[in-house]
Design a protein around this nucleic acid. Structure first.
Lengths: 208, 208, 208, 208
DNA sequence: AATGAATGAGTTTTCATTCAT
DNA sequence: AATGAATGAAAACTCATTCAT
């Protein structure tokens, strides 16, 4: 079934996935209707169920698609031999940002997805998030922690850094939403870099 | 209409609000059914609509109730003349935590609400969040910023601190969800205090 | 039960009947709500059911009230010894018009009522309309038909006359509805008199 | 949506429209239930809303259908070059009568519809009735008024004639309703012709 | 493979009527 | 007698999914 979908030409696939993401973002899982998705995608009702079998499975497919897209791009951008925490962080955030520019609905879809309650969605989400944890380990491997000030509690410090970038990216999304403007991602990334610079001075020993 | 609800005895009101919050938390706005809410609350279908008029307005009432409950408790706990940022922060987080212990569904409800797409919910949310901003100004008034190290970028520093506690509280909720255990809030608050202590050392001049 | 209602002071009775008629006219039998009726009348829900027992019985009471009001006024105005058909007709239409001025909702209520479908309403209507027929006999008794031209088919002639005034009064109501203006009954009655004059010339022998 | 309905085969369309008219006639707009309509029509609930979108729009569709059916048949039967008023009138009433024989519910539906209070129904009714007025102009065009007695007030005369046939057709319907019999339209039309003959003698000059 | 009409269980909301106070 | 909160059956409408073509 999913194979049928994979065999479509890339353009049609993209059109269908975008249509679905837009609709799910606009209305949430339950309120989104398959009627509107097929209308946006320009395909027939039958086709959608032919490809994905059910609304559930379409949603699950999208979640996997989003995660894979992020992971692939981040892995491409990140040099896992780079021992400098902040350079590595910069690479990762760069990868994330690039994906956000290329597929703007993807970010919004992912944020929405994390708040969903439909049983099957929640179950799949949990499985995939667990699968992400080792990924995190990879990111932190080979880091030269000796560059951090000796007095620091390293685990706490890393958490503070990650929460900051989570909070910052939420704030950027909110700001865009309330001002009704499109994200100017280059300007936003400058802000990201400011915080990286701020943390570098705050947490690294002087010579770095 | 709402007056009719306010006239009920406190215990019945609590039962109804809790029933509604539990249902909305478990299933999200759209999937939650008024049938299940009245069953949980032990009232008739008619009564619910007698009190709130519609599912929409029940949800809006709950959002206001949550915000008011938090605001009231935080205002009670916080001494707005206390010039020490971290003592003030401690007071505020203490207030938040107390509410979370007394009304555990409230936290979960609020997190869910922020991800909803139903038009009326989104609109109301936006209005209330805007109304919260001056509140934030109050919290930061009369703080003695001279206790922070001179080299610090104060606005960034404050943002980092708030995002950290936002991230920490999300993590605590997630942890509870995946371990299926009730929150042991006293233990969790110890963790909050650890981070306060960590920041105090990191950001304050030595003598404080 | 109805006795309880009859014992009320006249002003309160009038207020309740008017409130009910306004509501039924505005929305029709089924769409009218007892909530709105008690709100308009300024009495409690319980009172309404105390007086009339049910919505059905309130409606039936109103139908009887309307018919009795018309009948009483028409009987007062009509001289049943007057042998001239057109003078008698003028008296009757005068009586009708007076009621329409005194209780404007009454007319509208009656027109609405005749189009209703609720079983109990239809049944009662039929009974009352049958009871009205002898009334019609009274109206036509003692008329001096020798004043009509000899060539005329009298039964047909009388039907044409009644249908004309039915049609005219419908047209007046429609005209008022579409122009959103209040009925100027004096002007309208001049029109009625024009048609009476037209018929008198058309149907009566020359000397009358 | 309506297109979907138009695409159905004629027999199914007829079945659905008849079912809806019967139900609306029997119970009126508000009391009629979509459940009963689909049961009568032998289609699913979903199908009805697939075709018409809402109960409102189904009702509006029926009103248009009734008017179009009448208009089409009357236009077919009427010779708009015929200068004789009564021949033209005969043609028109003949057309009306034919429709009433072919679609008996149509008459009943139309009478009911004129008494309805539902906002959308009233609004549509008003629009359609206004649209009918030019139609009336057409009917009266090219009439040779010189055949009427010179002393007559022509506008009043025409009104009297139309109100008579309106009253007569209402009486025929009432009579049928109270005797629980089907309309024997051929016999009824003989009555219509009697009145035409009566008016011809009353209003035309001798030689006609 | 693709279409889109048809299905019907499931949901919110209304409102006449009852009944404890 | 009067109140008005509470009840719950009934009704319009939705939409994922199926299936004949």
């Amino acid at each position: 079934m999913l194979q049928t979908f994979e065999n479509l030409d890339a353009e049609k696939k993209r059109r269908i996935l975008n249509a679905a993401m837009e609709e799910f973002v606009a209305k949430g899982y339950k309120q989104a209707t398959t009627d509107d998705i097929v209308a946006r995608a320009g395909i027939s009702k039958g086709a959608l169920f032919h490809y994905f079998g059910s609304k559930d499975r379409l949603y699950v497919y999208l979640m996997d698609f989003v995660l894979d897209t992020y992971r692939r791009r981040i892995n491409e951008r990140t040099n896992f031999n780079e021992p400098d925490f902040f350079i590595r962080l910069h690479q990762m955030l760069q990868g994330k940002m690039e994906v956000s520019i290329a597929y703007p609905d993807l970010v919004a879809f992912w944020i929405k997805a994390r708040g969903e309650s439909s049983d099957i969605v929640v179950a799949h989400l949990e499985k995939r998030i667990t699968a992400l944890r080792p990924q995190m380990q990879d990111f932190l491997a080979n880091i030269d922690y000796s560059r951090f000030k000796d007095s620091l509690d390293i685990p706490k410090t890393i958490k503070v850094i990650f929460w900051t970038f989570e909070g910052l990216s939420n704030e950027i999304v909110e700001r865009a939403k309330s001002s009704q403007e499109l994200l100017n991602l280059e300007k936003e990334f400058a802000e990201v870099e400011e915080y990286i610079q701020y943390f570098r001075i705050l947490f690294y020993k002087e010579k770095w």
